[in-house]
Amino acid sequence: MKPHIHIANTIDAAEVISLVSKPQFGAVDLFIGQVRNHTKGKAVVKLFFECYHPMALDEMEKIAELAKKQFDIQEIAIHHATGEKLPGDVVVLIAVSSYHRDAAFKACQFAIDTLKETVPIWKKEFFEDGEIWVAAHP
Protein backbone atom coordinates (compact mmCIF):
# COMPACT_ATOMS: atom_id res chain seq x y z
CA MET A 1 0.00 0.00 0.00
CA LYS A 2 1.15 3.52 -0.77
CA PRO A 3 1.96 5.65 2.30
CA HIS A 4 -0.38 8.50 3.18
CA ILE A 5 1.77 11.63 3.22
CA HIS A 6 0.34 15.11 3.66
CA ILE A 7 1.30 18.67 4.62
CA ALA A 8 -1.52 21.10 5.35
CA ASN A 9 -2.61 23.89 7.65
CA THR A 10 -4.62 21.53 9.87
CA ILE A 11 -4.55 17.86 10.78
CA ASP A 12 -7.72 15.82 11.27
CA ALA A 13 -6.70 13.01 13.64
CA ALA A 14 -9.80 10.89 12.97
CA GLU A 15 -9.18 11.10 9.23
CA VAL A 16 -5.52 10.09 9.56
CA ILE A 17 -6.41 7.15 11.81
CA SER A 18 -9.04 5.99 9.32
CA LEU A 19 -6.39 5.91 6.57
CA VAL A 20 -4.47 3.13 8.31
CA SER A 21 -7.22 1.28 10.22
CA LYS A 22 -8.41 -1.96 8.65
CA PRO A 23 -10.17 -4.94 10.28
CA GLN A 24 -7.29 -7.31 9.49
CA PHE A 25 -4.73 -5.27 11.44
CA GLY A 26 -4.43 -5.84 15.18
CA ALA A 27 -2.54 -2.67 16.02
CA VAL A 28 -2.65 1.03 15.21
CA ASP A 29 0.02 3.13 16.88
CA LEU A 30 -0.14 6.93 16.90
CA PHE A 31 2.32 9.68 17.57
CA ILE A 32 0.69 13.06 18.03
CA GLY A 33 3.01 16.02 18.40
CA GLN A 34 1.44 19.20 19.70
CA VAL A 35 2.57 22.70 20.62
CA ARG A 36 3.81 22.98 24.21
CA ASN A 37 2.95 26.09 26.21
CA HIS A 38 6.57 26.49 27.32
CA THR A 39 10.17 26.06 26.15
CA LYS A 40 13.21 26.29 28.40
CA GLY A 41 11.22 28.03 31.14
CA LYS A 42 9.61 30.58 28.82
CA ALA A 43 5.90 30.75 28.01
CA VAL A 44 5.19 29.99 24.35
CA VAL A 45 2.53 32.23 22.79
CA LYS A 46 2.48 30.44 19.42
CA LEU A 47 4.63 28.65 16.85
CA PHE A 48 4.88 29.17 13.11
CA PHE A 49 5.85 26.26 10.84
CA GLU A 50 7.21 26.66 7.34
CA CYS A 51 8.53 24.12 4.86
CA TYR A 52 9.72 23.53 1.34
CA HIS A 53 6.74 21.40 0.29
CA PRO A 54 8.19 19.34 -2.59
CA MET A 55 11.29 18.30 -0.66
CA ALA A 56 9.40 17.79 2.63
CA LEU A 57 6.83 15.52 0.96
CA ASP A 58 9.61 13.57 -0.77
CA GLU A 59 11.52 13.08 2.50
CA MET A 60 8.34 12.04 4.35
CA GLU A 61 7.61 9.48 1.63
CA LYS A 62 11.16 8.10 1.97
CA ILE A 63 10.67 7.75 5.73
CA ALA A 64 7.40 5.90 5.22
CA GLU A 65 8.92 3.54 2.66
CA LEU A 66 11.93 2.85 4.92
CA ALA A 67 9.61 2.12 7.85
CA LYS A 68 7.66 -0.36 5.72
CA LYS A 69 10.88 -2.11 4.68
CA GLN A 70 12.46 -2.22 8.15
CA PHE A 71 9.39 -3.16 10.21
CA ASP A 72 6.53 -5.54 9.58
CA ILE A 73 3.92 -2.82 9.11
CA GLN A 74 1.02 -2.65 6.68
CA GLU A 75 0.02 1.03 6.51
CA ILE A 76 1.61 4.34 7.49
CA ALA A 77 0.41 7.93 7.43
CA ILE A 78 2.58 10.96 8.14
CA HIS A 79 0.86 14.34 8.31
CA HIS A 80 2.54 17.60 9.30
CA ALA A 81 0.98 21.01 9.78
CA THR A 82 2.27 24.36 8.59
CA GLY A 83 1.34 27.90 9.50
CA GLU A 84 0.52 29.43 12.87
CA LYS A 85 -0.15 27.02 15.74
CA LEU A 86 -1.20 27.73 19.33
CA PRO A 87 -0.38 25.69 22.46
CA GLY A 88 -2.30 22.41 22.29
CA ASP A 89 -2.64 22.43 18.50
CA VAL A 90 -1.58 19.26 16.67
CA VAL A 91 1.54 19.78 14.55
CA VAL A 92 2.42 16.26 13.44
CA LEU A 93 0.54 12.98 13.43
CA ILE A 94 2.01 9.63 12.49
CA ALA A 95 -0.25 6.59 12.35
CA VAL A 96 1.08 3.09 11.74
CA SER A 97 -0.87 -0.16 11.44
CA SER A 98 0.42 -3.70 11.64
CA TYR A 99 -0.75 -7.17 12.54
CA HIS A 100 0.99 -6.90 15.93
CA ARG A 101 1.78 -3.94 18.21
CA ASP A 102 5.56 -4.28 18.45
CA ALA A 103 6.13 -3.46 14.78
CA ALA A 104 3.72 -0.52 14.91
CA PHE A 105 5.42 0.97 17.99
CA LYS A 106 8.91 0.63 16.51
CA ALA A 107 7.94 1.99 13.09
CA CYS A 108 6.13 4.96 14.62
CA GLN A 109 9.15 5.92 16.74
CA PHE A 110 11.47 5.48 13.78
CA ALA A 111 9.23 7.74 11.66
CA ILE A 112 9.08 10.65 14.12
CA ASP A 113 12.78 10.44 15.00
CA THR A 114 13.79 10.40 11.33
CA LEU A 115 11.32 13.15 10.39
CA LYS A 116 12.86 15.48 12.96
CA GLU A 117 16.33 14.77 11.52
CA THR A 118 15.70 14.93 7.77
CA VAL A 119 12.50 16.75 6.74
CA PRO A 120 12.94 20.43 5.80
CA ILE A 121 10.34 21.94 8.14
CA TRP A 122 11.28 24.95 10.25
CA LYS A 123 9.57 26.52 13.24
CA LYS A 124 9.54 29.95 14.76
CA GLU A 125 8.74 30.23 18.46
CA PHE A 126 6.93 33.31 19.73
CA PHE A 127 7.28 34.34 23.37
CA GLU A 128 5.87 37.31 25.26
CA ASP A 129 9.26 39.03 24.98
CA GLY A 130 10.40 38.03 21.49
CA GLU A 131 10.67 35.35 18.85
CA ILE A 132 13.28 32.97 17.47
CA TRP A 133 13.65 30.54 14.58
CA VAL A 134 14.43 27.08 15.90
CA ALA A 135 16.23 24.36 13.95
CA ALA A 136 13.46 21.85 14.63
CA HIS A 137 14.34 20.17 11.35
CA PRO A 138 17.24 20.69 8.99
Rank of each mutant, 00 (worst) to 15 (best):
residue 74 Q to C: 13
residue 23 P to I: 00
residue 19 L to F: 03
residue 108 C to P: 01
residue 20 V to S: 09
residue 99 Y to V: 09
residue 94 I to L: 07
residue 79 H to M: 01
residue 36 R to N: 07
residue 44 V to D: 08
residue 91 V to S: 09
residue 57 L to A: 00
residue 47 L to N: 06
residue 21 S to I: 06
residue 107 A to G: 13
residue 38 H to S: 01
residue 60 M to T: 00
residue 54 P to W: 09
residue 112 I to H: 13
residue 108 C to Y: 05
residue 125 E to V: 10
residue 122 W to A: 06
residue 31 F to M: 02
residue 127 F to G: 10
residue 135 A to C: 12
residue 102 D to W: 06
residue 13 A to I: 11
residue 52 Y to C: 14
residue 109 Q to I: 15
residue 65 E to V: 09
residue 137 H to Q: 02
residue 114 T to G: 15
residue 32 I to L: 08
residue 14 A to H: 10
residue 91 V to P: 09
residue 87 P to Q: 03
residue 36 R to D: 05
residue 55 M to D: 00
residue 22 K to I: 00
residue 113 D to P: 15
residue 56 A to F: 07
residue 3 P to A: 01
residue 72 D to L: 08
residue 113 D to V: 08
residue 94 I to C: 06
residue 110 F to A: 02
residue 108 C to K: 02
residue 117 E to P: 14
residue 125 E to A: 12
residue 29 D to W: 00
residue 122 W to G: 03
residue 17 I to G: 02
residue 96 V to Q: 04
residue 5 I to C: 09
residue 119 V to I: 06
residue 37 N to M: 10
residue 23 P to T: 09
residue 97 S to P: 01
residue 81 A to D: 04
residue 131 E to V: 02
residue 69 K to F: 03
residue 131 E to M: 06
residue 134 V to Q: 15
residue 31 F to P: 04
residue 90 V to C: 14
residue 38 H to K: 02
residue 50 E to K: 04
residue 78 I to N: 04
residue 105 F to S: 01
residue 101 R to G: 15
residue 114 T to V: 13
residue 110 F to N: 15
residue 74 Q to A: 04
residue 114 T to P: 10
residue 95 A to N: 07
residue 21 S to G: 08
residue 9 N to Y: 09
residue 42 K to H: 14
residue 17 I to V: 01
residue 88 G to Q: 05
residue 92 V to M: 00
residue 30 L to I: 13
residue 64 A to L: 05
residue 108 C to I: 06
residue 68 K to Y: 02
residue 96 V to Y: 14
residue 64 A to E: 11
residue 32 I to N: 03
residue 20 V to L: 05
residue 132 I to V: 13
residue 64 A to M: 15
residue 43 A to S: 13
residue 135 A to T: 10
residue 60 M to R: 00
residue 122 W to T: 01
residue 78 I to M: 01
residue 85 K to W: 05
residue 99 Y to L: 07
residue 11 I to R: 03
residue 69 K to V: 14
residue 8 A to S: 14
residue 67 A to V: 11
residue 22 K to M: 01
residue 133 W to M: 08
residue 105 F to P: 06
residue 7 I to N: 12
residue 51 C to Q: 04
residue 76 I to G: 02
residue 134 V to G: 10
residue 130 G to D: 07
residue 131 E to L: 12
residue 109 Q to L: 08
residue 71 F to T: 05
residue 50 E to Q: 08
residue 8 A to P: 06
residue 41 G to H: 10
residue 41 G to D: 03
residue 40 K to L: 03
residue 43 A to L: 15
residue 133 W to T: 09
residue 104 A to L: 11
residue 41 G to P: 00
residue 35 V to I: 11
residue 31 F to L: 12
residue 96 V to E: 10
residue 133 W to A: 05
residue 94 I to V: 14
residue 71 F to V: 14
residue 98 S to W: 00
residue 34 Q to I: 11
residue 70 Q to D: 15
residue 29 D to A: 12
